[in-house]
Design a protein around this nucleic acid. Structure first.
Length: 583
DNA sequence: CTGGGGATGGGGCCC
DNA sequence: CGGGCCCCATCCCCA
């Protein structure tokens, strides 16, 4: 017994989920466009992807081989089995580009379709697509070019082709395309795996010599060990050790700098649809490399460390997943509890970029999806009551159209929607920083509750609590005072309604650049601070210091009421609440 | 099952 | 801009 449309329906659902960013667990960066997708889907469609997504949540593709608009078609193909090609005259070019991309990504079925199409349309020999070494040869060319551009160090590791040359090895393409500044793709699952955690550090990113240009230096010199994704961004990470995977992404993630978020042009017109007949063909071969090795160090800590930063993961899950991805751009995090990374405060629009957010799940556009995603919100909806409004910089105001309306690109500050990223960008530039200042009441935006609370809570101990004698610089809004004008200025930003520093990955905005870069590190899994005892890594030095007490047994924080000792101050505080709050 | 403690992640913010 | 610290939230373990 078999359901006739089962596979189709399933794919349809998955594609819908992708459109909304629901449960998407990987971000693919192509030039300056970000695409969200599901690892499983990618892995099932290509060995290359399989090796990439194994250890990374962020994949950066070689822009020599694929551009945003082509990748969009590729992704559509992966999720639908249909090839939607543009109808314009550049059709042939488009197929050629698609073929290149498909070869690079080892999407054999798509490559075959393209070849067929090209053959049919021009009868000419196909560009770079000799059947056998086809993609590889092309990749090699690319590779050569790339490597030549980098210092030819001893690091030009290009492992010799695998013995079983003919078999498309999972990593083969990668290897071919590896250059010093790119990462390796893990060839065998073995190596890499371990990665994350601690020990192996792996996630190599290979960024060896050529440091990727990061708009933001997300790397922090790691005082300790090496090789993890974290190090990837640091100039001296030793790439050689980790021929592994994913790091790729991380490394490149670097490219997620401020400028990287432009939207890929939306390729529209679709004139023909080629469908993949033998959809069944998957790249399942090479099972070996897939299974991620079990986390080696099974300490709880180590376990926690794998994958996305845990929090992050949950953040994505509960909050971001519904952010739709439109034209390669992540559209807004949904809102949720304040805690989450990006989602938390749903804001997402950067004044200088094209992110646009979608708040909650647009209440509506897709009723049906809601049911699917009901799970999605559990976390947050439970707590935040779906309240988009608890957030600052609410993305979708009452009167706003659902994000999926005609004007997908919405300017957070003023709420105007635009049909294209270009228009939105042009519009955004009309906002000056001054406008970002709070207009207090009457503003379309609501001041963030959390901030208020935080302020209140901290008030007693905050600066204002101290004698303001030595603090001549007073905030006109809340009357807190500071020792120097710079700090006052910094503080005043907390009163802004709009935050000038957006995360290029999730769109969340921050008042301080440092906070934003710190946040970005969490997206990228950059944890420069490693514990020498257990290998656990942290994003902040302070956390490491805190963590070290776990090993030393030091418990410097003592409860004055019961004498209980704690390794962390926050736990003491938490403990004190037990004493104070009767419940 | 529940509450407390340990440990960790993320954001805000001051220095 | 980085370091530090505070707060919140959460997960896991254990009694």
């Amino acid at each position: 017994m078999e359901l006739p449309n089962h596979a189709k329906q399933l794919l349809l659902q998955l594609n819908q989920q992708r459109a909304k960013g629901f449960l998407c667990d990987v971000i693919i960066v192509v030039e300056n466009a970000l695409f969200r997708a599901h690892k499983n889907i990618l892995a099932a469609s290509s060995i290359y992807f399989k090796s990439l997504v194994l250890h990374d949540n962020l994949i950066n593709l070689d822009t020599e081989m694929v551009n945003p608009s082509v990748f969009r078609q590729v992704l559509d193909f992966i999720y639908t089995g249909k090839l939607l090609s543009s109808s314009d005259h550049s059709n042939e070019q488009n197929f050629s580009a698609l073929l290149t991309a498909a070869s690079y990504l080892q999407l054999h079925d798509l490559a075959a379709l393209c070849r067929k199409k090209l053959k049919r349309s021009s009868g000419k020999p196909l560009p770079g697509k000799p059947s056998t070494p086809g993609p590889l040869s092309r990749l090699r060319l690319n590779n050569q070019r790339l490597s030549s551009s980098t210092p030819a160090g001893p690091n030009n590791h290009y492992p010799p082709a695998p013995s079983d040359a003919d078999q498309p090895q999972p990593d083969e393409g990668l290897r071919d395309k590896l250059s010093d500044d790119e990462l390796f793709v893990g060839s065998s699952g073995k190596v890499g795996n371990g990665g994350h955690g601690s020990s192996n550090g792996n996630l190599s990113s290979g960024a060896s010599a050529g440091e990727p240009d990061l708009g933001l230096d997300l790397s922090k010199k790691s005082p300790h060990s090496a090789g993890t994704a974290t190090d990837a961004l640091s100039p001296h990470s030793n790439s050689q050790e980790s021929p592994q995977s994913a790091s790729v992404s991380t490394t490149n993630s670097a490219s997620l700098d401020d400028s990287s978020t432009t939207l890929p042009g939306a390729d529209t017109c679709i004139s023909e649809t080629m469908e993949l007949n033998s959809a069944s063909k998957t790249s399942e071969e090479t099972p070996n490399q897939t299974d991620g090795p079990p986390p080696h160090k099974k300490t709880r800590q180590a376990a926690r460390k794998n994958e996305w930063p845990k929090r992050e993961a949950s953040g994505l899950k509960s909050e971001e997943h519904d952010r739709p991805l439109v034209n390669g751009v992540i559209v807004g995090p949904k809102d949720g509890r304040s805690s989450g990374i990006c989602g938390g405060s749903g804001s997402c629009f950067a004044s200088d970029q094209s992110f646009h957010c979608k708040d909650e799940d647009d209440g509506g556009e897709n009723g049906q999806d809601h049911s699917d995603e009901s799970g999605q919100s559990d976390g947050e909806s439970a707590g935040g009551g779906g309240g988009h409004h608890s957030v600052n910089y609410v993305y979708r105001q009452e009167g706003f159209e659902p994000a999926f309306g005609d004007n997908l690109y919405v300017c957070i500050p003023c709420g105007k929607g635009f049909p294209s990223s270009e228009q939105l960008n042009a519009h955004v530039e009309t906002h000056t920083e001054d406008e970002l200042y709070i207009k207090e009441e009457g503003g379309a935006f609501v001041k963030e509750e959390d901030d208020e609370e935080a302020e209140d809570l901290s008030a007693p101990v905050g600066p204002s609590g101290f004698g303001s004698e030595s603090r001549p610089f007073k905030c006109t809004v809340c009357s807190k005072s500071y020792k120097d004008p710079a700090t006052l200025r910094q503080h005043e930003k907390s009163h802004w309604l709009t935050r000038p520093f957006p995360c290029n990955i999730c769109g969340k905005m921050f008042t301080q650049r440092g906070t934003m870069t710190r946040h970005m590190r969490s997206h990228l899994g950059l944890k420069p601070f490693a514990c020498e005892e257990c290998g656990m890594r942290f994003t902040r030095q302070y956390r490491l210091t805190e963590h070290m007490r776990v090993h030393s047994g030091e418990k410097p924080y003592e409860c004055q009421l019961c004498g209980g000792k704690f390794t962390q101050q926050r736990n003491l505080i938490s403990h004190l609440r037990m004493h104070t709050s009767p419940s």
